[in-house]
Amino acid sequence: MASLNIEPNIARPDDFYQALIDTHRDLSGEESQLLNAKLILLLANHIGDVDVLCQAMARARDGIRPAPTKVPR
């Protein structure tokens, strides 16, 4: 199983970060939510590997609130 790359991988981190923030300029909160959703979908398709995507989702959730455990039938 491929694993999520959490080592530095972005060549110009400050440029990237600024571009990310700039992408949301002049948008309302709701519009920004929509942009983020589209961005996640585009990047997820680029990555393609569902195992990697699920690792990223779990890491993103980590430290916010534990994921609900699935109740067995």
Binding site: Q33, L34, A37, K38, I40, L41, L42
Partner: peptide, 10 residues
């Protein structure tokens, strides 16, 4: 709903 609409827009 946001993700749903994002999918439809894309």
């Amino acid at each position: 709903r946001t993700f749903r609409d994002a999918v439809l827009l894309l």
